[in-house]
Nucleic acid binder design. Structure first.
Length: 283
DNA sequence: TTGCCGATCTTCT
DNA sequence: GAAGATCGGCAAA
């Protein structure tokens, strides 16, 4: 197992992002190991990128992004999901790569159990018919635990098996399959004794850059035109494209409507990106 | 298959 | 008080 070096991450996220495709992120827990080959990532350019959490400066939440490269920045979003980034460049640049999707290559059963709420290891409870919240969301005093019959979960339906391609298809699903939460915020992914680490694929030490395509980032309303999302062409595990912003796209969140990644117009579907161009700094 | 919508809570203005 | 780097269920086409 060849871990990726910190030098690899000590570059701009736009350089790291396509190189990460095909690499493997793995999380070792008491329950076992789950490994995911990355098939889709997004680059965020720190305080120069309006879509980045770091754009408005350092906060307690995003502090890890301003730290050294090769560490995980894990955040909690939409009240129920975790998303994971890998910090790049360092020197306070807050450059990072969001892990959007991957293919489970090891620990498929464990990933399946986590995704269907059958983690059974102190993990997430199932919530019949709706989203399984991450660990801790219902930990204490949440409405779900207060109401009804003394803190019982709602009755569970028999969980349906998650299709293989959907196990880690999407940033929150990927985190759920890998059991990544805020406890891993700041974890060093470049050292072997870390529970969370990133390694080169077994077969080859070079990513499949010839199959990499780019397109606009998902769900962002700022700088949405930048083709800073990278995915492996033809990969079924790549998450569906959702436009960012709220205007005119239905309900809250404004993210209704999915389009297959390859079906995007505009700058989507381009081959490997051209020169790195950061948006002008206008603050 | 596509699109709408609600769930849920942290973060920031 | 509003917004958000999301997701899954459901209805309509």
């Amino acid at each position: 197992m060849a871990l990726i070096s910190r030098e690899f991450f000590a570059r701009h996220s736009l350089q790291v992002a396509p190189d990460l495709l095909g690499c493997v992120i793995e999380h070792q827990t008491a329950a076992g190991l789950v490994a995911v080959e990355l098939t889709e990532v997004e680059a965020y350019a720190g305080d120069r990128d309006p879509a980045s959490h770091a754009y408005r400066g350092r906060t307690a939440r995003n502090a890890v992004m301003f730290g050294p490269p090769g560490h995980a920045y894990v955040y909690f979003t939409y009240g129920m999901h975790f998303c994971a980034n890998l910090v790049c460049l360092g020197n306070g640049s807050a450059s990072a790569v969001l892990l959007r999707a991957g293919r489970v290559i090891e620990g498929e059963e464990l990933a399946q159990a986590r995704r269907t709420g059958r983690g059974g290891l102190g993990g997430r409870g199932g919530l019949g018919g709706t989203v399984s919240p991450p660990r801790g969301v219902w930990g204490d005093g949440s409405p779900q635990e207060q109401g009804g019959s003394g803190g019982d979960r709602p009755p569970e339906k028999t969980p349906r098996a998650i299709p293989f391609r959907d196990l880690a298809r999407g940033p929150a699903r990927l985190c759920q399959a890998l059991d990544i939460d805020r406890s891993l915020d700041g974890a060093d992914v470049c050292v072997g004794d870390s529970p969370l680490r990133v390694r080169w694929p077994e077969a080859s030490t070079t990513p499949r850059s010839d199959k990499i395509v780019t397109g606009p980032r998902v769900g962002v309303s700022s700088a949405a035109e930048l083709p800073w999302r990278f995915w492996i062409e033809g990969e079924p595990t790549v998450s569906a494209y959702r436009r960012g912003g709220r205007g005119g796209l239905g309900g809250r969140g404004g993210l209704g409507g999915t389009v297959s990644p390859q079906a995007q117009g505009g700058s989507g579907g381009d081959r490997h990106p051209g020169p790195i161009q950061l948006p002008p700094r206008d603050r």
